[in-house]
């Protein structure tokens, strides 16, 4: 089974890209799709209806979505393998940019919109720097010079990244991506690890306590001017 993990900020074009990938492979491979989101997601129903593939979604709710993704990845792999899936596509919610959902096997794709701002590649941290491939979308909305400037900024963050540009709604110029997916190695579930370190995400805020201020919380909390050693906070 091949694995593709797609990350990127909201509205960058992750689902539009997913649809192009599904459209291209649906007659050659059995595809399964997982959408991780926080509050609401329709993509699974849409993909199931339009392309007749296996889909699932998970709402992370009070849990951080990348954290939720890590926890359910094992179950999803099992589900996909049981269904004899050839290509598993996981689309992350892509929110806080602290983490990246990529694993050490398969392909990690970051989707960035041409109009997301010139400093976005730096701000997105691990989501860009630990990916294998960057797909720049909405290229019909900006000038070529500006696209080149954005691509240079992505390369400044991740010099080895494989870059492609597309109008994801039309699916232009994606043949190279398809060949990379087609030639990617099948994953070995017993040796699958996250590429980046996730935060623990087990503080009182993460689990949904709404109080404000230090005296109401404990866990892994950073103070405005705090030292690293003060991270493990035990409440006041």
């Amino acid at each position: 089974m091949k694995l593709v993990v797609i990350a990127g900020p909201p509205s960058a074009g992750k689902t539009a890209l997913t649809k192009q990938i599904v459209k291209n492979f649906k007659d050659k491979m059995k595809i399964a799709y997982l959408k991780i989101d926080v509050v609401k997601a329709y993509e699974d129903q849409e993909l199931a209806k339009d392309y007749n593939i296996l889909t699932k979604k998970i709402y992370s709710g009070d849990l951080c979505p990348d954290h939720a993704g890590v926890m359910v990845l094992g179950d999803v792999l099992e589900w996909a393998e049981k269904n004899k899936v050839d290509l598993l596509i996981i689309e992350s919610a892509g929110l806080c940019l602290r983490c990246s959902p990529y694993v050490n096997q398969g392909l990690g794709i970051v989707v960035l919109s041409s109009i997301s701002g010139i400093h976005a590649p730096e701000k997105m941290g691990a989501m860009v720097s630990l990916s294998d491939i960057a797909i720049v979308t909405k290229i019909d909305l900006v000038s070529q010079a500006e696209r080149e400037v954005l691509i240079q900024k992505i390369k400044d963050v991740h010099p080895q990244i494989i870059l492609m540009e597309t109008n994801a709604l039309q699916g232009t110029s994606l043949t190279y991506l398809y060949s990379l997916i087609e030639n990617s190695q099948d994953i070995d579930r017993n040796n699958l690890f996250l590429k980046g370190n996730p935060p623990l995400g087990t503080c009182t805020i993460c689990i949904g306590k709404k109080d404000i201020g230090w005296k109401n919380h404990f866990g892994v909390i950073k103070k405005l001017d705090g030292q690293i050693t003060e991270y493990l906070y035990r409440g006041e």
């Binding site: 019909d140 909305l141 900006v142 000038s143 070529q144 400037v149 691509i151 110029s173």
Partner: peptide, 28 residues
């Protein structure tokens, strides 16, 4: 050539008249 616009031997001026990059002309 196909996947790296900065080595593509083509420059296109689109109908676009807006830049989104938060940079000065010199930096851009």
């Amino acid at each position: 050539y196909r996947y790296n616009p900065s080595i593509r031997p083509i420059a296109m001026i689109t109908q676009n008249t807006k830049c989104f990059a938060d940079l000065s002309t010199e930096e851009f």
